[in-house]
Amino acid sequence: METPGRRERKKAATRQALADAALKLFLERGYDQVSIRDIAEAADVSTTTLFKHFPGKEALVFDESEDREANLIAAVRQRPEDQGVVEALREYVLATWLPLTAHPQYAGFTALVSGTPALQEYGERMWTRHAKSLGAAIAEDAGVDSDDIACHALARFVLDIPALTRGRQDPRNDVERIFDLLERGWR
């Protein structure tokens, strides 16, 4: 794997600084009380620079969306030959979702998104897009039509796991139970 050059590192650092500043301000003041200008100033960049990295205010909250979609698809396409799709997605969710639930800002982030209609709508559009891409990757892997309903249903179920397990007592156990259901069906 090639190490990113200085320019790419600077772009990534600026993007991260913007996302961090936005989340900090949103958690402190509330989403609707923070302007794009406030975020740019907190990250010490211009609003033009902010818009080079993010299409709008909502995107600052879901700053890892593109990476997450690519990683979900990679979990399907780059899994070991002897591993099934459901098991690969289980490993991905356990490795990525559970650590987020332990993050100190997790409760605040969840309350922010849950309490802000614009963020709820944006999040739903984002997850729908992810479900379409993941469903197509699962279908390609299974050798069926890209719009296969079972493949898209599996993608939606997997993507709903964070919402289903959010705030629950034992999220690891809940994630495992959901994947057991997906793998073995209802008993």
Score class of each variant (00 low, 15 high):
residue 18 L to S: 05
residue 156 R to T: 03
residue 16 Q to S: 13
residue 23 L to C: 09
residue 54 F to W: 07
residue 76 V to D: 02
residue 17 A to C: 07
residue 165 T to W: 05
residue 141 D to T: 01
residue 34 V to Q: 10
residue 83 Q to C: 04
residue 162 P to V: 03
residue 142 A to M: 08
residue 129 R to G: 14
residue 114 S to G: 14
residue 154 L to H: 02
residue 157 F to T: 00
residue 140 E to W: 01
residue 46 S to F: 04
residue 135 G to F: 00
residue 58 E to G: 09
residue 75 A to C: 00
residue 172 R to A: 09
residue 116 T to R: 04
residue 35 S to G: 12
residue 134 L to R: 02
residue 172 R to P: 03
residue 65 S to T: 09
residue 154 L to S: 01
residue 61 V to E: 02
residue 135 G to P: 03
residue 71 N to W: 01
residue 7 R to A: 11
residue 105 Q to T: 14
residue 44 D to Y: 04
residue 3 T to N: 13
residue 3 T to S: 13
residue 61 V to S: 02
residue 92 Y to P: 02
residue 118 A to T: 10
residue 52 K to R: 15
residue 181 L to D: 08
residue 139 A to T: 01
residue 141 D to P: 06
residue 6 R to L: 12
residue 51 F to A: 07
residue 100 L to E: 14
residue 156 R to S: 03
residue 36 I to C: 14
residue 157 F to Q: 04
residue 94 L to M: 13
residue 18 L to F: 06
residue 92 Y to E: 00
residue 79 R to G: 00
residue 16 Q to H: 12
residue 10 K to T: 07
residue 89 L to G: 02
residue 176 E to F: 03
residue 54 F to H: 06
residue 32 D to G: 15
residue 104 P to F: 05
residue 123 G to L: 09
residue 64 E to R: 15
residue 157 F to K: 02
residue 106 Y to M: 15
residue 179 F to G: 02
residue 40 A to P: 03
residue 23 L to G: 11
residue 48 T to A: 12
residue 81 E to H: 06
residue 42 A to T: 06
residue 25 L to I: 12
residue 52 K to F: 14
residue 145 D to R: 13
residue 1 M to F: 12
residue 164 L to F: 10
residue 111 A to M: 09
residue 161 I to N: 03
residue 92 Y to G: 00
residue 8 E to M: 05
